[in-house]
Design a protein around this nucleic acid. Structure first.
Lengths: 115, 115
DNA sequence: ACGAAAGTACGACGCTCGTCAAACTTTGAT
DNA sequence: ATCAAAGTTTGACGAGCGTCGTACTTTCGT
């Protein structure tokens, strides 16, 4: 059985503050973007992010608690899905605006402003 | 003479990262919201924000450098205007989404998540 | 000319966040 | 039964941000 499924908050109860704190980190935004472009579940380990495993775990938790992603186990892999529709209902236009702003941006603009 | 007019960057050159860093602070978001609801210039000292003068100055600078506001002196007062249209052109839908998300939110949701 | 008003500049301080390594857990294969 | 793979947890560390007080600058009244 999977008690291994973590808690997913109701998106409508999440304050904008928490959402913005989640989206302000470039690594997390990169995760969201990759999920958008893939529209299929992606395992934690299969993302193109330049951080250690423990840091990755941290970022996924922040995203999950901010209502942006859903996570469920498949074997030893944790799969991630964007909670696209639900999120858009609670925060109309927000995710589109954020993702679109960087969609065709030069690579440099996608990197952290401060190393 | 007013060399006292500070530098205002071209909004199109500003990375999303910088914009999100500006908008993630609740005090700064409150400033933006007040400017939206007033649609007239407001002096730095006339905002309803619970921080010291020097902290306020800091927040206005962050907002200006992120392309969100324009500042100009009138006497000893520094007036602030939202760069609404320009900003919307560079980041379509973003400011609307952020402001609208909190527009009719309960007061508690407008306060910092962490004191 | 003097003083008050409105901001700015400059340090300083505390807290939080992103980061990592190391140890641990759970699942799947052999 | 073992071992490897995939994540999580915990603790630690460094950098950055928001905050303030104090000193300074500029402008407006009187």
């Amino acid at each position: 059985m999977d008690d291994r499924t973590p808690h997913h908050p109701d998106v409508r109860t999440i304050p904008l503050q928490q959402v913005l704190e989640a989206l302000v980190d470039p690594v997390r935004r990169s995760i969201v973007r990759q999920l958008r472009e893939a529209d299929a579940d992606i395992a934690c380990g299969s993302f193109d992010i330049a951080v250690s495993k423990s840091t990755a775990t941290h970022h996924f938790r922040i995203l999950r608690e901010a209502g942006l992603i859903r996570q469920h186990y498949v074997g030893t892999s944790r799969m991630n899905t964007l909670r696209d529709a639900e999120f858009a209902e609670a925060f109309p236009g927000l995710l589109d605006a954020v993702v679109d702003a960087e969609r065709n941006a030069p690579a440099a603009a996608r990197r952290p402003a401060r190393a």
